[in-house]
Design a protein around this nucleic acid. Structure first.
Lengths: 229, 229
DNA sequence: GGCATCCGTTCGCGTTCCGTAAGACTTGCC
DNA sequence: GGCAAGTCTTACGGAACGCGAACGGATGCC
């Protein structure tokens, strides 16, 4: 994947998120470098800022288009609806308005790639202990009984199920699940509490989604062989 | 493959994509040239713009059909919904609304070719729970009783039946069922409502075509084994 | 031409969910 | 025990969301 943005801060944050999402990321700081890199690396996807020094982003986009059919996600400073439409009309595969949440970017990237590979191939179902979680159906169940989780709760639970027996600080969760680089940490606290209310047998004394004092939270299942202990 | 479009920019972008996809592309700029080229090259597929100088695209299509059974993908102008219907009724193999993403075009071309090479058998009848849906006859029925669905409702229902137990955002549906890259999402909302009115026993509290808050819609049948629960 | 159908859009209303703040409680440390 | 920092609990306002109803326009049919 190729990431083109002239702002080093944006580029750094975005690429670190994308790498955390399992992508190999090349970077370019201007239009010329972008074209060269696209030629040399033949990336499977390009994230392109529309405002670039030197050659304009849209112009870069057109030149790319002449040579390859690589999917392109456009980034733009002001998120007016017209620009979005103009971008899509020009043939971009998706569009993201700055400032964007890094998580949003990762989601879009995944979505575009999924689209270009094969439409709607369902994600595999997560099974852990008595829990079953189907990401494509967005259904979570304990012992065959469906849990009605909200969007945030589901995302949080999904993340924890994918990384059991591991401690995450509130900041970690805010970054990965919420996609925020800053924000009120109590947001996490409250959502953890709400999630406990729905998945724990006795929410007052949680056994699975436990607090690691001074550090954060950890999801462990009793009865399930622990990776560490 | 033969590409017929009077707009040089569109033709250039599209054909470069198709060539990148491994296709051999001939081009024609108007109806006469199209008919001549079709005769001479005997392409295995034709991409045909509906709006052409001289002879109208649909007319070209009819004349083509008189002589050969080559698959045809129609390109229609934005928003002209009934053009699309007319096109499909006339026997086009697929349609694509302008402005389209070139990638989308390549995907459709591949899909149509796969279909036409693979088998001539009409699409198989979908059966799911008490529902029966015949895509080629465009007939949907619940428990043997025919449901009078409109074109949109049928398309939507067909897609949902083909992908049960999976959540789709309004955007997903707008892109796949409507073939739009952008547009008013409430269009989907309203059509889901109308479809519910016809397939749900109690449309006020739907049990099959359910809303997943903050995400989208999911079709699940009671009585049919669910993926998770 | 007149009628009916279908489609996309708009607006108001009720509901759900989220983030935050504030106070009570717990834990670790002295 | 007393203190401070960290965590839990509860409550609330606002925002986002989905729904229903209705409208205007386009099209096809008689």
């Amino acid at each position: 994947m190729l990431l083109v943005d002239d702002d080093p801060t944006v580029a750094e944050v975005a690429s670190s998120y994308l790498r955390a999402g399992g992508f190999v990321v090349e970077e370019a700081g201007d239009g010329f470098a972008a074209l060269q890199a696209a030629e040399r690396f033949a990336p499977d996807l390009i994230v392109l800022d529309r405002m670039l020094p030197g050659i304009d982003g849209l112009e870069v986009f057109r030149r790319l288009r002449e040579r390859m059919s690589t999917p392109v996600i456009l980034l733009t400073a002001l998120g007016s609806e017209d620009e979005r439409i103009a971008g899509l009309e020009a043939g971009a595969d998706d569009y993201l308005a700055k400032p964007f949440s890094p998580r949003e970017l990762v989601l879009r990237v995944q979505s575009v790639l999924r689209r270009s590979i094969g439409e709607f191939t369902p994600e595999s179902v997560l099974e852990y202990g008595e829990f079953r979680l189907d990401p494509s159906a967005r259904i979570a169940a304990r012992a065959g009984v469906e849990l009605s989780l909200t969007v945030r709760e589901f995302d949080l639970f999904e993340f924890l199920l994918k990384h059991p027996n591991q401690v995450f600080s509130r900041e970690d969760l805010l970054r990965t699940v919420w996609g925020w680089t800053y924000g009120d940490l109590s947001t996490v606290t409250v959502h953890v509490r709400r999630l406990r209310e729905k998945i724990e047998r006795d929410p007052r004394s949680p056994t699975m989604l436990t607090t690691v004092w001074g550090v954060g939270y950890r999801f462990t299942m009793d009865g399930v062989p622990n990776a560490v202990v």
